[in-house]
Design a protein around this nucleic acid. Structure first.
Lengths: 155, 155
DNA sequence: GGGTCATAGTTGCGCCCTCAAGTGTAGCGC
DNA sequence: GCGCTACACTTGAGGGCGCAACTATGACCC
């Protein structure tokens, strides 16, 4: 058993990665939930929509951009639609697709939530590094996979 | 809206962090599930137990070490007990605590799963960096929070 | 037009996890 | 011994999400 009795040096960064992610997202998620009633993924969706042309995206693209499955997006948007932050929009040229469109309330909500959320991210993540360290980190992390959903997404 | 219309440079590492984690854990989890019927957390539990004195730990300590709530651990261990990989052990000096103890089958399972899993981690994470990069990464990640569960966390 | 295949989206089912509330002990001051 | 608080753990309810199966459309070919 000595073979696994002590975590190899190599694994340390992996473990730190896992644990930190768990701790940080739990905290950020709780914050967002408490103060704005949003999930981390809710927030991400609003954010992506706000960056998109005309504030709308195809559901499938939305799914890919926040790394959720198609069904995940359906349910997530369900909640956001009920809350009035996004609305459905059909596509005239292809009846299969439907867009999710950010509403004014959604944009409003996003900008409110952004304040808290960005502060949280800063506290728990960004604020712990200098500018150059952040750049290093970004470079290192950018080598990691970012797909994994269906689609083969030859991104 | 221009205020959030383009993700600030600062946020890039945060986004990479989120996305990579999502992609990697989904893949590893699927791998582990497919080939061994284990969750990522199942695996972590077995691993922690294998490192522990006498192969056993208090449930509450186990919870903290894999960043799960008390109830999460109860349910997770439920599954592992049913599968015969861990067993319950009472404490003679304090009737409140019960230990989770790694069984021989559990140790066996762990060592089987380790092969696949370590390979997966290597492919998706470790293998993308040189030794010194790994050290840098480990150092950077070690500055992030690692608690957030109950305990004090009166946040 | 009628096959065949790819794609967008939804739904049923089930897992994992959290939160809040509840049970059974332990320890402490009286 | 009797309350009181602290702690370890369990349970019930509910949410988020993935997987697989399904529907509806579009594209292509004969």
């Amino acid at each position: 058993m000595t073979q696994i009795s002590s975590p190899p040096q190599r694994l340390e960064s992996w473990i730190a990665y896992l644990r930190s992610h768990s701790a940080i997202t739990r905290e950020l998620s709780a914050q967002l939930q408490r103060e704005h009633g949003l999930t981390l993924n809710d927030y991400e969706v609003l954010l992506h929509l706000s960056h998109a042309e005309a504030g709308m995206m195809r559901r499938v693209d939305l799914a890919e951009s926040i790394l959720l499955t198609a069904s995940g997006i359906t349910r997530l948007l369900e909640g956001l639609e009920r809350a009035g932050f996004v609305c459905k929009q059909t596509c005239s040229s292809d009846a299969r697709v439907s867009y999710a469109k950010l509403t004014d309330e959604g944009a409003q909500k996003l900008s409110e939530a952004s304040v808290t959320h960005l502060r949280g991210i800063d506290e728990l993540f960004l604020g712990r590094y200098s500018g150059s360290e952040l750049a290093t980190l970004a470079e290192l992390l950018s080598r990691l996979p970012v797909t994994g959903i269906s689609s083969s997404a030859c991104s």
